[in-house]
Design a protein around this nucleic acid. Structure first.
Length: 544
RNA sequence: ACCCUCGUAGUUCAAUGGAUAGAACAAGUGCCUCCUAAGCAUUAGAUGCAGGUUCGAUUCCUGCCGAGGGUACCA
């Protein structure tokens, strides 16, 4: 399809030249209404200003020129109001594509854009202060799917989880566990004001009691350490439950221990980008075009998150990745530009870094907003959700929405409607195909190498193939935009066209030659649907 | 107050600056002697408000209204 479009583009350009019209970038895309043809260009609408002519007239002159020698696979050129030039692609072009898809199989639509390249995707990166919640779910599913998209295009991807077990949050976590420990023992305890109130804290305290006995004293480091280990195990388990695995966990502590943070600070100081004021150390962001300076080291001596974050990103750059992706929640929108600024001021190139911001999920229960807070223990865990509605429903729910939409997640609706989740629509198409193939086998029909694709001329058959040939371009688009949702949309459309085909055309019939051709067709649909579902981390069931 | 993101059908969401704004759920109506009715067909229903750019705006720009996030020596 890409080649065909290139040919048409060239042909249009050539006719512009012979008509002495100016060169201009123009679009060539399938029109919304298929009656107009398979591809349309807006070139004449764009030229109307330069030429001071009505667009329709321009279109007609170009079409006349193109008609002198029709581009390959083009059977008809028409002009419609207000001045689109439409191309009708020959059926045989589409018919021949079934074989292409079957031949390329798992590779159909792979661009190779990332061949020989490496990518790092950092996501989730939640500190181990509590269970993985629905809030983290969007991050996890997005990051995992973006990683899969990169892998599809040939990248060698490292899925990475960055965490910090040394900061304030973790200190309070330890204090919370300690308080519960003494509470269980009936001793005096003081629960921190901003402590973690979840019941999992009590569970951890109980475990510590069981394992280490009753003699721990206040301030024992076991409280925090045990809590961290236990919670991290839970998080990892929840991630696996969601179908997400990580290749690497990186601890913020590393950059204190290996001296990278000191190095970073002294380099910035040498460039006069750091100064001391009010007992704190400041990063001179105003010198780099921002409207206020930022604290780098608090008066307590503790660096703010920006410092290790910058060291961490320098580390990722030094590891030589061709592409570095961060999946952040909207609350980071203001923070990451400072990290990039610091890196750039150190002379590092940051073009390969792409930050994907996703908007928060608003949790609702029966229309009522739930304010999520790990500390206040107002959260719904991913495990609860996955156990209730299943991994495919959860993943698809997050994938089918654009990451910059503020989405509402009503728990009641989610569970009530989980059996109506559109993910089943895709999976059902896949299962239906598998069933037809099985049915064919039972009646002695097996897809061979030679089938007559010329028999695939029913409108629904052509309609189906017309959509399939766009798959490679759509996968490229998903890569450029790093939006999994694009894939969800295209599979949705593929399933629709398949179901319509199914309603109109019987595959296994008395007519063996036709059956064979249709078997080839649906197998090619299965290839694309299967690949698409796999990229999205969804199962492709053989029966439902 | 300022910055970022968003505002589309009753609800949850789609729509490379293009032609008649698409789905799903909810509401109404049809279709299983036929490869799975988790499907198909069909009715009704929407671009927050006001301007601007453009041949053409849901999309780009300005203002207003509304939601979420940020403007922390929290991450």
């Amino acid at each position: 399809m890409k080649k065909l479009k290139q040919q048409i583009t060239n042909a249009v350009s050539a006719s512009l030249t012979s008509l002495s019209y100016p060169e201009k970038e123009f679009s060539l895309a399938p029109p919304k209404n298929p009656e107009f043809g398979d591809l349309s260009t807006n070139i004449s609408l764009l030229l109307t200003q330069n030429l001071k002519m009505p667009p329709l007239e321009i279109a007609q002159s170009i079409a006349k020129e193109l008609n002198k020698e029709l581009p390959h696979h083009i059977s008809e050129i028409s002009v419609t109001l207000p001045g689109f030039i439409n191309f009708k692609v020959d059926k045989s072009f589409y018919q021949s594509k079934v074989k292409t898809i079957l031949d390329e199989d798992d590779s159909f639509g792979k661009s190779g854009l990332g061949a020989g390249k490496t990518a790092n995707v950092e996501f989730v990166s939640a500190n181990p202060t509590g269970p993985l919640t629905v809030g983290h779910g969007r991050n996890a599913v997005l990051g995992d799917t973006v990683s899969s998209i990169l892998e599809w295009h040939g990248f060698d991807v490292t899925r990475e989880y960055y965490f910090n077990d040394a900061g304030r949050q973790m200190r309070i976590l330890g204090q919370s566990v300690e308080a519960r420990y003494f509470e269980i023992l009936g001793k005096e305890f003081e629960f921190p004001d901003d402590g973690y109130k979840g019941t999992y804290i009590k569970d951890i305290a109980q475990t510590i009691l069981d394992d280490l006995g009753v003699d721990l004293s206040a301030g024992d480091s076991s409280f925090k350490e045990k809590a961290e280990i236990s919670i991290f195990e839970d998080i990892k388990k929840s991630l696996l439950n969601l179908g997400v695995h990580f290749d690497q966990f990186t601890n913020e502590k590393t950059f204190y221990e290996n001296g990278e943070i000191d190095k970073l600070l002294s380099e910035l100081r040498d460039k006069d980008l750091i100064y001391d004021k009010d007992g704190a150390t400041w990063f001179r962001t105003t010198a780099l075009g921002k409207d206020q300076d930022r604290v780098y080291i608090k008066s307590t001596g503790e660096p703010t998150y920006r410092v290790p974050d910058t060291a961490y990103h320098r580390d990722k750059i030094n590891r030589g990745f061709d592409l570095i992706i961060d999946i952040f929640g909207a609350d980071h929108a203001d923070a990451y530009p400072d990290v990039l600024l610091a890196l750039e001021s150190l002379g590092l190139k940051t073009d390969q870094i792409r930050v994907l911001l996703y908007q928060f999920v608003t949790l609702l229960r029966g229309g009522e907003k739930i304010k999520m807070s790990t500390r206040e223990a107002n959260f719904v865990t991913m495990d609860e959700l996955v156990n209730e509605v299943g991994i495919d429903v959860v993943r698809y729910f997050f994938i089918m929405r654009s990451m910059n939409t503020h989405l509402d997640f009503d728990l009641e609706l989610a569970t009530d409607q989980s059996d109506k989740n559109p993910v089943f629509y895709l999976q059902y198409a896949h299962a239906r195909i598998c069933n037809i193939i099985k049915h064919g086998q039972e009646s002695g029909l097996e897809l061979g190498d030679d089938f007559d694709s010329g028999l695939l001329s029913h409108p629904e058959e052509i309609n189906l193939i017309q959509h399939m040939v766009r798959f490679p371009e759509i996968m490229e688009l998903a890569f450029e935009n790093l939006e999994p949702q694009i894939i969800a949309n295209t599979l949705q459309e593929l399933a629709t066209r398949f179901h319509k085909f199914y309603g109109q055309c019987h595959v296994i019939t008395e007519d063996r030659v036709l059956s064979n051709a249709r078997l080839a067709l649906i197998t090619s649909v299965k290839v694309i649907m299967g690949n698409g579902l796999k990229i999205l981390g969804l199962t492709a069931p053989e029966r439902m």
